[in-house]
Write a protein that binds this DNA or RNA. Structure first.
Length: 665
DNA sequence: ACCCGTGGGCTTTAGACAGCATGTC
DNA sequence: CTAAAGCCCACGGGT
């Protein structure tokens, strides 16, 4: 099937041909046959890099009206937005937490790119553009199975479909075990394929050799004399070196940030860049280092630049978003030979390499170490092989010995990925979405909430959903928390009467507090915590209510990210809390979860030093966090302080430091 | 006096979505 | 309260 044969405008055909797309890949052709261009619902479960974006573009361009592209990451949203915006005659918009087109523009855009949470939020806040959609493309739809975010995605899609029943849904999924269940839910045709534009072989290394799934082997002699690193690291280094000496690029996945940095530093010392330097890439690597130095002068940054100078980089969430974007771009432009990364890179933006080495396959979880999900390892391996640049891709899992080889082989090479299961039946998820449904006026009774949830993936997967009890509990707890109250149903607004007729208990509505919590997009639990703290503030001396107080109000909530509190620091933070106890809403003895509270005091302290003018470098050094960690805390603090201000207004507490602190962030 | 290897105890452990309002020729 | 692995440091043996 050729692009020219598709029902596209000539200018679009031209555009794609200019980009080198003339003949459709088999999965793309299958998607067209399934009706992507005819307004039909389609679920495509295909590997990454098999041309999913083009399928999305087909759906969006042939739809009879505005389209929405939903994806899980802001960086991904940016990437897609830029791509769609290049389409001739297409006016694209973007809406994510950190980057937003004007609301007035979104309504006029042909294609809007947004994160799933942003779509949910737009619905909650009554944004007009969500009602005129003709087509919704959902990328990475398998995230339906993710504990925190999956429920948001399924409720949002259910709501969109209910509001606009004729909307076309095109869902793109990684290869999972039960894509038919997703297709079944969406009344969609399923397209399944394992086809890739570049051959990929996956293997396991043990005992000096890799055995690949295509039957080939690769001998990897390792001089085990060097006691400074362990055997797995030796093997990883040798595999990376091999790929680079062969003129390719490599990605190495390890389990922790420290490991990623240590591996990068080790490879840097091997002077791999000399090997990769066929042309003028020395200057390329140096230019990357230069750009990284300009991006910010933290200690992490200079170590990163030092490694980049030799063609090697590390990558994890401790890096600032600038640093991460720079590393990703430089690697795509082949100005870097190697990235040593934590699992972040597996799910992020497109960073393909000739060879992928997965050194660590386990991860700490808080309940011991756990095997990485098969899907995640597959996504790491799937990064191997660049179309048009590599003759093939190779992914190698590193095992300790022959037993380990067999274990990894069975677990990851021959095994199917996990099933996608709904996580909607979770107390916190149901509280959040029940509140949102009621607050938006979408449901005014328990029965109506259940009805709204009947269009979810959860409901389609369960013969007898029986959410009644769980939703009932959610409603009861939300009433306890002052977010919901018994309403008067249809008689709402009629003055007089005591409200309670025969329908008592069946009608519910959101209180002002509940409505504000839903609109601010904080979880009900965060709303409760903030209100408790605000009430404590009301009883404090005005002089004691400082910006530190403001930060404490928002830091001990589930929506703020935890900050690790090391043993060495604990005593010092304790001292700090004692010294500032007058400014804190929680007494040293009243915290229910003292450890958790102390961690939030640490976060509050970091933020308050930040607004007092401390530099990124100082804070990063003093609190042993990465620049990216500081960035994310500042970002969340900005959001949560705004939410706290709105809630303070509702409960009638005046707290000026909330806004003064926010202004200084 | 110095170097190196060993062993035990201590320390640490991936990631990342969201509000709102506003400006200009 | 779970598990694995790196890091630091003290110790001991050899030169």
């Amino acid at each position: 099937m050729r692009v020219a044969d598709l029902p596209l405008a000539p200018e679009h055909v031209e555009h794609f041909e200019r980009e080198g797309i003339e003949e459709l890949y088999p999965p793309q052709a299958a998607a067209v046959e399934a009706g992507v261009c005819d307004g039909d619902n389609v679920v495509a479960a295909v590997p990454t890099a098999s041309g999913k974006t083009f399928v999305a573009e087909l759906a969006l361009l042939t739809a009879d009206g505005p389209g929405l592209y939903v994806c899980p990451l802001r960086a991904l949203a940016r990437e897609k937005f830029e791509e769609f915006d290049r389409l001739p005659g297409v006016d694209a918009g973007i809406s994510t937490g950190d980057y937003d087109s004007a609301a007035s523009e979104l309504a006029g855009n042909d294609i809007v790119v947004a994160t799933s949470e942003k779509v949910d939020s737009a619905i909650r806040n009554g944004a007009g553009w969500v009602d005129d959609l003709a087509c919704v493309v959902v990328d990475e739809v398998h995230l339906l199975g993710a504990a925190g975010r999956g429920p948001t995605l399924e409720v949002t899609l259910a709501t969109l479909r209910r509001r606009t029943p004729a909307v076309q849904i095109v869902a793109l999924s990684a290869t999972v075990d039960n894509p038919e269940d997703i297709a079944d839910w969406l009344d969609a045709e399923l397209v399944e394929s394992t086809w890739r534009p570049v051959d990929l072989r996956v293997g396991v290394h043990a005992a000096d050799a890799v055995e690949f799934d295509d039957g080939t082997t690769l001998s990897v002699p390792v001089d085990a004399d060097d006691p400074s690193t362990d055997a797995d690291t030796e093997v990883t280094a040798a595999l990376v070196r091999g790929a680079v000496e062969d003129g390719g690029q490599a990605l190495a996945f390890v389990s922790s940030r420290r490991e990623a940095e240590a591996l990068a530093e080790r490879l840097r010392d091997e002077r791999l860049a000399d090997a990769v330097d066929t042309a003028d890439s020395t200057s390329d690597a140096a230019s990357v280092a230069e750009e990284l130095r300009e991006a910010g002068g933290t200690e992490t940054g200079s170590r990163l630049a030092e490694a980049a100078d030799r063609g090697v980089a590390f990558h994890h969430a401790g890096l600032s978003s600038d640093q991460r974007a720079l590393v990703e771009r430089a690697f795509r432009e082949r100005r870097l030979a190697v990235i040593c990364a934590t699992p972040t890179l597996a799910a992020g933006v497109n960073v393909p390499a000739r060879r992928v080495v997965v050194r660590d396959q386990q991860r700490y979880t808080g309940e011991g170490t756990e095997w990485l999900p098969v899907l995640e390892v597959h996504q790491m391996c799937g990064r191997a092989g660049r179309p048009h640049l590599d003759p093939y891709g190779e992914a190698v899992l590193v095992a300790d010995d022959e037993d380990g080889r067999e274990a990894l082989w069975n677990r990851y090479v021959t095994a199917d990925p996990e099933r996608v299961e709904s996580k909607l039946r979770d107390r916190a998820a149901l509280r959040t979405h029940t509140l949102a449904l009621v607050a938006t006026g979408f449901a005014g009774s328990q029965a109506a909430v259940l009805d709204a949830l009947s269009g979810t993936f959860y409901a389609s997967r369960t013969a007898n959903p029986d959410l009644g009890g769980a939703v009932g509990d959610a409603i009861a707890s939300l009433i306890d928390d002052g977010m919901l109250e018994a309403g008067e149903g249809k008689a709402k607004g009629s003055a007089g009467g005591n409200g309670g007729t025969g329908d008592t208990g069946s009608g519910i509505e959101a209180t002002d507090l509940g409505a504000q919590v839903s609109r601010q997009y904080v979880t009900p639990e965060t709303g409760v915590r903030i209100v408790e703290r605000l009430e404590a503030v009301a009883g404090m001396n005005d002089a004691d209510v400082t910006e530190l107080t403001a930060f404490e109000v928002i830091c001990d909530t589930p929506d703020m990210v935890d900050t690790y509190l090391g043993n060495a620091e604990r005593a010092e933070i304790y001292q700090f809390a004692r010294a500032h106890s007058a400014e804190l809403t929680t007494g040293m003895t009243d915290a229910e979860d003292f450890e958790g509270w102390l961690e939030s005091v640490k976060t509050a302290r970091i933020l308050s030093e930040w607004v007092d003018g401390a530099s990124v470098e100082e804070l990063v050094a003093a609190y042993r966090i990465g620049p990216g960690d500081l960035e994310s805390r500042i970002e969340r603090a900005e959001w949560l302080l705004g939410a706290a201000e709105a809630l303070a207004d509702v409960v009638g507490v005046s707290m000026p430091t909330l806004s003064s602190a926010r202004a200084k962030l």
